[in-house]
Design a protein around this nucleic acid. Sequence first.
DNA 1: TCTGGGGTCCTAGGACCC
DNA 2: TCTGGGGTCCTAGGACCC
Length: 433
Amino acid sequence: MFALIDGNNFYVSCERVFQPQLIGRPVISLSNNDGCTISRSNEAKNLGIKMGQPWFEIRHLEKEAGLVALSSNFTLYGDMSNRMMQIAAELGPAQEIYSIDESFIGLHGVPGDLVQRCHEIRSRILKWVGIPCGVGIGATKTRAKLANHIAKTAERKPGIYPAQLAQVCNLEALPASDVDVILAATDVGEVWGVGRQIGKQLKALGVHSVLDLAHLSPTMVKKRWNVVLERTVRELQGEPCIALDDAPPPKQQIACTRSFGQPISTLPPLVQAVSDFASRAAEKLREQDSVAGQLLVFAHTSPFRGGPQFSRHSVVKLLRPTSDSRLLVKAAIDGITSIYSRGFQLIKAGIILLDIMPTTVRQCELDFGDIDSSSTANLMATLDALNHRFGRGAVSIASAGLPRSQRVWTMKQERLSPHYTTRWSDLPIVKAN
DNA sequence: TCTGGGGTCCTAGGACCC
DNA sequence: TCTGGGGTCCTAGGACCC
């Protein structure tokens, strides 16, 4: 048995904890460069604002409907997430943190009334962190996801589902006939693992509801589609196919990419940008104690605009797998310089670290040729410590050397609004008992 | 004027080997 | 001109997730 607990409208809910005057108003959180919508309050959803919708399409709602749009603040969201996850972990013996705002809980061996327990944890998170959550319980992760959708929808749109399923929904505690009614009332596209493409194909074949999908033969689904959808069908039918992943392996790819505030057409700011991206990615790499063998760097023009289009990438093989910021920055610069061409309005660039493997003692020794390996490790550790202490980008690799004020992109963490100057580490950690 | 930034898994097909 | 079968590894691309 699994529970899925997630924060409602997470980023907006985080903002509202510190700006209670936003409660009851339509509020959205915007992506980097305030490009598009990444979180919406219920009031914003009711205005018809879609997930991912570009800001320029909806900004008229500021005046017309009192919409409040906020730049995102991922430092804040990450900290709120940690607090929420700590309390959510009390639900059961195992936890998989699935994303910044949701976690699966393994409920094996948990005694007593599960629904009541979930309500208690939910109230505790609301009271101690300030984030409203929904909880779904099911025999499989897919059913728990579905139950979570029902719990949230029952709360937000009364009438579609039984009112007592609001906030916490245990699919397995309902009579089978009730479950069928609920599944029949739910669009197949709501199922975890069914996206736009597959959803369209299913509907073309008359599979419209979750119940329709659950009634398909897994063998046929595998033949007609693939094993991924087959697993989804089996999970819907109650057969666990996806295990709780409470100790995720180190990442196999680490990316750092950004859209620019304004297009770039010259090399120096591009070099500066990919240098920063490579530095940040190198930090992430060292955080998981890995090294990368290759670095991919890319840049492209906007597909939404006219004019000559440019989209190129280059894969740079490192001499040896490394996590040294200096070598990765150099590789990024070499790569971008090799693909750069004049005359294009570049709107986005990024780097992706590939061929990632764990750092081993031997690799440490081999690393950096004539540079002493222990001093390199010390240097990188110092770099990370300084940036942790004084904020991201406080110390960086000197490459093209554009002052921050002349940059044409923003790293998210540089855009903290003045409201959020609290040092989160100074606040007491709440312990749940 | 203005359109995010991460990740994962799976499959097909090519290169290469014996 | 005729030209096996099976295995592995790698990569690109497509689908999905939040």
